[in-house]
Computed example of a mutant assay.
Amino acid sequence: MTCSTSVFLNSLWAMLAGHRFDLDDQRLVDLLDIVHKCFRMIDPSGGLLNQMPPLRFIAPRHSGYTNLMTHLNRIWNFLRETIDDHRKSFNADNMRDLIDLFLREMETSKCQNNSSFEDLQLVSLCLDLFMAGSETTSNTLGFAVLYMLLYPQVQRRVQDELDRCVGTDRQPLSRTDAADKQHLRYLEAVLMEIQRHATIAPSGIPHKALKNTVLMGHTIPKGTTVLVSMWSLHRDVQHWGDPEVFRPERFISGNGNIKQDDWFMPFGIGKRRCIGETLAKASLFLFFSTLLHNFSILPSSESPLPSLEGYDGVTLSPKPFSAKLIPRK
């Protein structure tokens, strides 16, 4: 799903840096490759390096530190060059993007001793949005295509709903997006079930306890790295009943409305939940609905049906598979 990754990365880059890459731009191809490799190199807890940091000095190559830093430095250098270009053309009266806004805040707060608005923070912010936003959303869309390939009856029901609610004279969400989304309830339930069943961030994002805490009788010392098993929440038998079954109807209430579930939390929970949740939901809905509105996803005659087993890493990603996109009449 390289194409989907480039679409989401381009959307983020337009907000960060004010422009998009051409799809044949070699820089975009290289960046996509770096992002994917970085997410596959380590597990959610940070891997061996996170457990034994001195290994980066003792055995940098064998511990994976050298390889990881090689790829990260390529992204850091690219981001620093982009920020330097912005600084050269910066105009406080003409804000073009997030980088400009951050640079303006750096100017207004440079006399404050405790200000966190500095170059390193800007690079880190861009890196977080750049990597996490593009990889997670594109992986979810990749799994969405895979699920539609494996569950054609669900695909047909989504398309029937699109034909009924959107029609054939326009694209989904092109004019009255709020009205479209309100009526495309089964499509929304399908996306929710894909996020539950696939759980691309099975251990969430690592957090650190800021003070000694007691949670359900368990003592969590200050400084402890905390991981929440989203996979366990989304696959709990007592709560879901049949968690292994792909069944979008579980998110639709008896009166046909979307049913919210406290155990469904693909973006985390609380004030530390994913900062890109709103953008991710809107992007997934737009791309998924437009894709199924215009194409039917069918198995490739040259390849057997793929499995749902994905690549491990900070996030789960679908393994390469083949499918045919047939234009709908």
Results as ranks from 00 to 15, higher is better:
residue 133 G to V: 02
residue 209 A to E: 07
residue 96 R to L: 01
residue 14 A to H: 10
residue 202 P to A: 00
residue 81 E to Q: 15
residue 288 F to Y: 14
residue 118 E to F: 14
residue 112 Q to V: 09
residue 109 S to A: 06
residue 252 I to W: 04
residue 283 S to I: 06
residue 247 R to Q: 12
residue 308 L to Q: 09
residue 259 K to W: 04
residue 182 Q to F: 10
residue 162 L to W: 03
residue 319 K to D: 04
residue 59 A to N: 01
residue 142 G to V: 05
residue 107 E to W: 05
residue 41 M to G: 00
residue 258 I to T: 08
residue 244 E to D: 15
residue 64 G to T: 10
residue 79 L to V: 13
residue 121 Q to R: 11
residue 312 D to R: 15
residue 264 F to A: 09
residue 164 R to H: 13
residue 253 S to N: 15
residue 291 L to S: 00
residue 167 G to E: 01
residue 280 A to S: 10
residue 58 I to V: 13
residue 165 C to A: 04
residue 39 F to T: 01
residue 205 I to P: 10
residue 246 F to C: 02
residue 39 F to Y: 06
residue 206 P to V: 02
residue 301 S to Y: 14
residue 282 A to L: 08
residue 226 V to H: 05
residue 171 Q to I: 05
residue 195 Q to P: 11
residue 325 L to Y: 15
residue 305 L to C: 07
residue 259 K to Y: 05
residue 26 Q to H: 11
residue 238 Q to V: 13
residue 214 V to P: 08
residue 262 D to T: 02
residue 159 Q to Y: 01
residue 311 Y to P: 08
residue 209 A to C: 08
residue 228 V to D: 08
residue 259 K to V: 01
residue 62 H to W: 11
residue 19 H to A: 11
residue 63 S to T: 03
residue 296 S to Q: 04
residue 90 F to T: 03
residue 37 K to S: 01
residue 177 D to R: 03
residue 116 S to V: 13
residue 137 T to D: 07
residue 244 E to M: 11
residue 295 F to D: 03
residue 252 I to P: 05
residue 203 S to I: 02
residue 29 V to A: 11
residue 195 Q to L: 11
residue 95 M to R: 10
residue 218 H to S: 15
residue 18 G to A: 01
residue 199 T to L: 03
residue 266 P to N: 03
residue 9 L to Y: 09
residue 96 R to M: 00
residue 80 R to F: 09
residue 110 K to H: 07
residue 44 P to A: 00
residue 278 T to D: 13
residue 320 P to T: 13
residue 62 H to P: 00
residue 239 H to G: 11
residue 172 P to R: 01
residue 266 P to D: 02
residue 153 Q to C: 08
residue 262 D to S: 05
residue 187 L to F: 09
residue 181 K to A: 07
residue 112 Q to C: 04
residue 93 D to S: 06
residue 172 P to W: 00
residue 180 D to Y: 05
residue 45 S to Y: 09
residue 30 D to S: 13
residue 19 H to F: 13
residue 111 C to V: 14
residue 28 L to R: 15
residue 109 S to D: 13
residue 130 F to H: 03
residue 129 L to P: 12
residue 237 V to W: 06
residue 37 K to G: 00
residue 3 C to M: 14
residue 212 N to K: 07
residue 314 V to E: 02
residue 290 T to C: 11
residue 45 S to T: 08
residue 33 D to R: 11
residue 198 A to G: 04
residue 294 N to A: 03
residue 229 S to F: 08
residue 296 S to L: 01
residue 39 F to R: 02
residue 40 R to Q: 04
residue 223 G to N: 03
residue 145 V to D: 02
residue 152 P to A: 00
residue 263 W to T: 13
